Simulated scan of single mutants.
Amino acid sequence: METIAAIPVFVAVVEYGGFSPAARFLGISKSAVSKRITQLEQQLGVKLLHRTTRKLSLTEVGERYFEHALKATEAARDAEDAVAQLQGEPQGRLRINSPMSFGRLHMAPMIPEFLKRYPKISIDLVMDDKRLEMVSGGFDIAIRGGDLSDSSLIARRLGRIHSVLCAAPDYLERHGHPRQLDDLLEHNCLSFSYSNDVRAWHFVKDKQHHSVLVSGNYQVNNSEALQEAVLRGLGIARLPTFVAGPDIRAGRLKVLFPDYQMPVQDYNAVFIERQYMPAKVRAFLDFAIDYFGNGTPYWEEGIDV
C-alpha cells in the first residue's frame, strides 16, 4: 500500500520537474516528498531518479516505471471523476489560471458569487499574464484568449475580446487628433509587451487589412499599467475593452478610428480532455458562461466597438 500511495508523489515530481514544485502542488513539505521517493526506491529495489543540485532526471528504469505510474494516476483520477459525477453537490479543489488584468477585474468579482452557490468547492486562482502550462501547473481550468496551441485541451467559449485604440482627451489636446492611420507614426504609441505584435498595429475596414508600425517610449507587461499611462496623457495605446470600457463610457478615454476594427479574439475557459468531466469543472464552466453572457459582455455596454 505504501508503494501505491507513493505513485502520485513520484508522478508529480517528474511532471513538475523537482521536489519543491511537486511539494507545492501536493500541499506537503519538500522533505515529505523526498522521503516518499526514497521509500519508493527502497521498496522497489531500484533507482528511479538521478539527482543533482541543478537537475533531476529519470533513470532508464524510472522512465519505464513512470509510464505505468502515469497510467495508474490517470485511472485513479478517472475513478474519482466518475464518483464525483454521482455526488449531489460539486465539491473539491479547483485550480484556475487567468491573465492578470482579466483576473483582477472580472474573475475576482465572479468567484465569490460562484463560491456562495457552491460552498463545497475551494478555488486556487493564479493570475499571470504569461501562459502557464496546464498540466505542469496543476490547473483544472485556464482563461485564455485566441486559438489553442495544444490539441489535448478543450475550450468553452465565454465571449469575445475586442481591442480599441485609446487616448486621453488631455493628450489629444496637446498633440493633436490623428486623422489617418499613418498619423500614428508621429505619436507616442505605448505597447503591451506580451502581445504577439508589439510594434505592429493591425486594422480592418471594409474587409481591407491595414497595418502601421508604431513606436513609443513605454512598454509594459500589464494592461492596467498601460491604461494608467494612457489616462495620464502619456500617449496612445491599444487596450482591450474589458480594461478600458468604464473609462470610455465616462469620457476619460477617447476611442480613435472607430470605423476601423482591430483584431478580435475569443476568450475561452480551457480544460484538459478527460473521460469524465469533474462536477466541479462543469459547475464552474456553466456558471462562467452564464456570468459573462457568451455574447455582448457587460463591460461593453454603452460603448461602440
Rank of each mutant, 00 (worst) to 15 (best):
M1A: 11
E2D: 12
A6V: 07
A12Y: 06
V13N: 05
V13T: 05
V13Q: 08
E15C: 06
S20T: 12
P21S: 04
G27R: 07
K30V: 14
S31Y: 10
V33F: 05
V46S: 06
K47H: 12
T53F: 11
R54I: 14
K55C: 08
L56H: 11
L58F: 11
E60L: 10
V61W: 12
G62I: 03
R64K: 14
Y65I: 09
E74W: 05
A75M: 07
A75W: 02
A79L: 10
A82I: 10
Q87E: 14
Q87R: 14
G88K: 15
I96R: 00
N97D: 12
M100E: 13
S101K: 10
F102C: 01
G103K: 10
A108S: 13
P109H: 07
M110Q: 04
I121L: 09
I121Q: 00
G137E: 03
G138P: 01
I143Q: 04
L148N: 07
S151H: 08
G159K: 01
R160H: 12
H162M: 07
A167Y: 02
A168W: 08
H175D: 08
G176R: 01
Q180Y: 11
L181A: 04
D182R: 09
S191H: 01
A200P: 00
A200L: 14
V204D: 09
V204R: 15
V204F: 06
V204Y: 05
V204E: 10
H209Q: 14
H209K: 13
S211H: 03
G216C: 03
N217W: 02
N217G: 08
N221C: 09
A225V: 12
L226S: 01
E228G: 04
V230S: 03
L234M: 15
A237F: 00
L239M: 08
P240W: 03
G245F: 03
P246D: 13
K254E: 15
V255Q: 08
F257D: 07
P258A: 02
D259E: 15
Q261E: 09
M262E: 03
D266Y: 14
E273P: 02
R274Q: 09
M277F: 11
P278C: 02
P278L: 07
A279T: 07
V281Q: 03
A283C: 06
F284G: 02
I289D: 06
W299A: 02
W299Q: 05
E300D: 15
G302Y: 02
G302H: 06
